[in-house]
């Protein structure tokens, strides 16, 4: 019977699961909302894995994310910083095995990973596959996915629509750093009849600036900058980050699974 390496990343908004085979190929991805209880979510994941016939008993399971301690059936728990580093290195690093997701062959061994999560933003420096430094903002929702979520709700837009609109806007700014105050700023902009494109632009611009301010603390020009997390699906976000940092920012469609991939890889160690 074959053995699987399963990584479970329970984040604040969504739970990501990755199954790797013995050759480190991704053979399954499961995405679920975290909901109220990470314990319940982990049980749903277990059920799904069993339904999909991944022999859980014979697999190595590693949990990560802020809900990592709630995954009672995991063999071990590793912090999301380490896992994101490992996962991003898998996706963007030079030792990437060919697994279909590896569409460019950059040979960079010096990665700077930007992960904009639901509740925090992580900046992780990875050298030769290992984390060497990191920063984390989790004190305040400005500069996190939560900020975008609140603002797109205020504009009644989905994330992709917000990005789409933002790409057509310009010249408007939100000054407040606090999500609560920024929301009222957005509402007054709407009230003043500002174009929705410009408001969308201002919203994304605000988070990009905030995130880049943090990234600048670790960024050096010899680094390959990669965006992971849910927002890596939106080209407008990685492009805007790149513009602000004056370098290319790489993103991949499996970016949101970086933490789960890293966790699964930790099972090999």
């Amino acid at each position: 019977m074959s053995k699987f390496y399963i990584g479970i990343d329970i984040g604040s908004t969504s739970a990501k699961t990755i199954v790797l085979d013995e050759n480190k190929n991704i053979i399954e991805r499961i995405l679920l909302p975290t909901g109220w209880s990470s314990k319940e979510t982990s049980e749903i994941i277990l059920k799904k894995l069993n339904e999909l016939n991944f022999n859980v008993g014979n697999s190595t399971i590693v949990a990560t994310g802020y809900g990592r301690v709630s995954v009672s059936f995991a063999n071990k728990a590793v912090t999301e910083i380490t896992c994101h580093g490992k996962g991003a290195n898998y996706l963007f690093g030079s030792n990437t095995p060919s697994v279909g997701v590896n569409d460019d062959k950059a040979i960079d061994n010096n990665l700077l990973i930007i992960d904009i999560g639901g509740q925090d933003t992580k900046i992780i420096q990875v050298e030769n596959g290992s984390v060497v430094d990191f920063l984390m903002n989790d004190k305040c929702s400005a500069g996190t996915g939560r900020f975008l979520e609140v603002m797109s709700n205020a504009l009644n837009l989905k994330m992709d629509e917000l990005c789409d609109m933002a790409s057509k806007g310009s010249d408007t700014h939100i000054s407040s750093l606090c999500t609560v105050f920024a929301e009222s700023e957005v509402i007054s902009l709407i009230g003043r009849g500002e174009k929705r494109e410009n408001i969308a632009f201002a919203i994304v611009d605000s988070i990009i600036k905030k995130v880049c301010q943090q990234a600048q603390r670790l960024y050096k020009p010899n680094m390959k900058v990669c965006l992971t997390g849910g927002l890596s699906e939106f080209k407008y976000i990685s492009d805007s980050l790149g513009k602000e940092l004056k370098t290319e920012v790489y993103a991949k469609k499996d970016g949101r699974y970086a933490g789960a991939i890293g966790a699964a890889l930790m099972g090999f160690i």
Partner: peptide, 16 residues
């Protein structure tokens, strides 16, 4: 818990 994550990651980094 946030401190635990940061410190945990730091220790994992030192242990690598």
């Amino acid at each position: 818990e946030q401190l635990r994550t940061r410190i945990g990651a730091f220790v994992e980094m030192l242990n690598k």
